[in-house]
Design a binder for these strands. Structure first.
Lengths: 191, 191, 191, 191
DNA sequence: AATGAATGAGCTTTCATTCAT
DNA sequence: CATGAATGAAAGCTCATTCAT
């Protein structure tokens, strides 16, 4: 099998994710990445022709994973419960929204291959948003969500609140319940 | 051809803000900045010894402005109303939270002067958080906020929801009211 | 006038020419170029965004110069004499044909700007060839050139023989006369 | 998956020649070579320790082949006819002159082994030139070549004109005759 | 003050070369 | 033999920063 393999795709993707979250697109360097992985910088180029191809590949893999999870969520008793499941999923995959915010930076000097990857990515983002928007609308019709709140605002709450830092180290499940409770009933006491 | 264009501090700060928001700390370059301002790159060095000093200076100015506004808010009839005013202020100054998230990047190779600027900044951030946390606690005691929600979660909601993109272009005042209504009462219909 | 100017466009073009002739397109590096010019590598980037832009710019300048000279040659008493003048010119500018041979290498990853420069260049090359071919045809009709030799062969002789190394260091004018004499009458003694 | 494709020396030499002619010494890379041959890059190292050894080996093989052909040409009725045969041979092996022009690039960091190969090569080049020069001198003495033309110029014509692109796709034999006719009698009509 | 010019540091990328299987 | 994997050296390029006017 030739020289001992040092690079591990899983590790590469993990390191890519961490570095992206920490430094953002502009601060993402193969130098730091290779140091994290303990391989030579050039080794990464054996797998990815450049930064953008690695990043878009990572994003697509992430998105596919999330979409697979979302599709496996289908058939909840109600849209309201579906939304709760989505929120929990978004918390687990809070990188997704960070990546979506990073997306515009990738347009500059996108090579044809990168462009292709980006359009796949965009398609999946659109699908993700679509699902969320549809579920919110359905829940409004179900009568389980207020109709006076714009759907875009509610969707925004879903994406943004999952980024809240859990500084008190509350257990994830409990944190999710608290967050959903806040979104559901607000901060005002019940009566 | 000397002195073609005077530097204007206001413009400099504005351009700094825009570039920081658009590209993040790692993507903030004097090159782009000077192009936006239509001055020579070297001209900026007449005012700031380097990148980090400009950025920390901008951040401090921003923070001072916000803190001044917050202090002018004091003496609301209730903590609950105070929190509403704070949310409106955070919406107006949504850059603030973006800057706070950018803060850690500034630690690397911070010169003594930058370190000093950073500690001023940290002091102001701490004060800002403190005010928010105190008001939330007071509101809990007032009985106008549920006690079962962790204060850190509520504070997080205050910072994060102001970043929601107003994609539907709803007028700012109305958007603020809708957002506060959501935070106050949740998405569930009253019944 | 700011820091003392070290780069001189004339020198830059000259060094570019020399390096291109010596190493060819693939062996042309900014490193060697900057060493020849005694400036930092990055300094060259202040003038040219990259290798290809410098090279195509150089080639266009060269071509324009040659075409200007050619146009100033017009109105010779006969096409035959015109061809002699052209040969002398080609000897003086023997780089031109070397550059034309290098031309195809420039197509890979040509940026839009480079593509534009290349199409200008191609237009001038075409014009140059055209002039040569037309003069050869006219000379054939004048009866001063054999009609049994393909025009392309004669044109080829004009371009290729100017590249013969003058190893014996014969004075240019004399060398040109000898070369033209060979082309005119061949190597066989008159009888 | 070992041993998928056997290396074939003939193919290797052919690919080496093509790549050298297309890209020149500086643009000759094992990467492209291995892709052309459809073998792993590292496989070439089983046969040649490095780039330069492959190139000098190829050049020596080429030169030997040419010299063998030249030796088999000996004993023409006259030096003039010998020169015609040589021209035809040079047309068939027009790579030879391209390689000779490439020769100087090989001096940089030549390893001992490469240096040895180069000196063999140089010996053969010298012999080749020698033969050509001697035949020209003999033909001058025979009275079949003008004595007023420097031998070096005539030799140069032999090497350079074989590089003329046959753009009109004239059959090789015919092209050779036309070229020799031009060299012999010049472009001027007979009377 | 403002600028044009130059530069070094550091990242991106390519490629020859090595090595274990 | 042939290969896949890893790597260092060197080129490509960008940008913060300095400096003389």
């Amino acid at each position: 099998m030739a020289r001992q393999r040092k690079m591990d795709m899983e590790e590469l993707m993990e390191a890519t994710e961490n570095l992206l979250l920490e430094k953002g697109y502009e601060g993402f360097h193969f130098k730091a990445l290779s140091e994290n992985l303990n391989v030579a910088r050039s080794t990464i180029y054996e797998y990815y022709k450049n930064k953008d191809e690695l990043i878009t590949d990572y994003m697509n893999i992430l998105m596919e994973q999330v979409m697979r999870r979302i599709r496996s969520l289908a058939d909840q008793p109600s849209s309201f419960l579906m939304l709760k499941e989505l929120l929990i999923l978004f918390m687990e995959y809070s990188q997704v929204y960070e990546m979506i915010k990073m997306r515009p930076s990738l347009d500059q000097n996108a090579s044809p291959h990168v462009k292709e990857q980006l359009s796949k990515l965009d398609a999946q983002s659109r699908e993700l948003f679509q699902i969320l928007l549809v579920e919110i609308e359905k829940a409004k019709n179900e009568g389980s969500i207020r109709k006076d709140l714009p759907t875009s605002l509610i969707a925004g709450v879903f994406f943004n609140t999952v980024l809240i830092q859990n500084t008190d180290q509350i257990p994830p499940r409990e944190w999710a319940d608290l967050l959903f409770s806040l979104i559901e009933d607000g901060i005002k006491p019940k009566n």
